[in-house]
Amino acid sequence: MTVSQTSFGSHEPVLEIKDLTVKYRGDTRSTTAVDRVSFSIGVGEIFGLAGESGCGKSTIANAIMRLLRDPAEISGGSIRFGGKDVLAMRPEELRRFRWQDVAMVFQSAMNSLNPVMTIGDQIVDIYTTHAGYTRKESLRRAAELLELVRIDPARLKSYPHQLSGGMRQRAVIAMAVALKPSLLILDEPTTALDVVVQQEIMAQIKELQRELGFSVLFITHDMSLMVELSHRMAVMYGGRIVETAKAKDIHAAPLHPYTQALMGAFPPLTGPRVPLTGLADGVKFSNIADLQEVSPAHFVSPLPALQGAQP
């Protein structure tokens, strides 16, 4: 936490997304999953993207990695990484970009390890393929990598099923930072884990971030977790960002009713018990307007457009 605050926002952006629009095309009609979304992430900054299932947050992550396949299609906007246009990259550029510049940890990534290969072989694979190291050198580095996430290097010889869920997730995170990317995308990295393990993984990510200085795009629906970890965050609803500000500001004073409902869904662990209200079933927001700055660095979609916000 401490580091992040000093490095926050003072640098040029690593990732800049402008008016990104992603559509899923059907035979008769198409659905806009991400609608004119803009945000940027600074060097060493942890940026959180919050929202519920179906709000488009994972689609954004996949769009950044250029992983979208038919019928999804980026129909507008730009994604720039370190000044380069990601959407214009050729296949070989993309290949380098994908693990060396930006790495991604997927939801339940611990199940994405190859069950018939040892952890060591899978890490060695990364080094020999992407960095061109010899097998011996790769093994040495793989051992270092596991130590970085506090796994005994003897585990290099283990198969994924021999590790616990938390250890597997840590191994996947280690693999993601193997080539020292400048941006790490974490898509619900702890959703399937128990709270104690979750806390350990998040502490691990913070520590790695402090050591290696990468930026993080952190995607989750758990607002408590997000506010604790992120410097700046955006709340998404129906493919649009409804509010973005410093995480502390959103926690202290959420302005959009949807943000308030999300915050209200996580009762505090301290203080008196106060009645909370979530979003009533079936309430929909439509025609979400563009963001407006209401106080320094705090942007909210203006309220008049919140039709149907009454339960």
Binding site: V196, Q198, D222, S224, H251, P268, L269, T270, G271
Partner: peptide
């Protein structure tokens, strides 16, 4: 105590000593 300390709570003053 382990469970309580692991729950993310932005309102909590001071985080748990590692």
């Amino acid at each position: 105590r382990l469970l309580v300390s692991a729950v993310p709570d932005p309102a909590r003053t001071g985080s748990y000593d590692p």
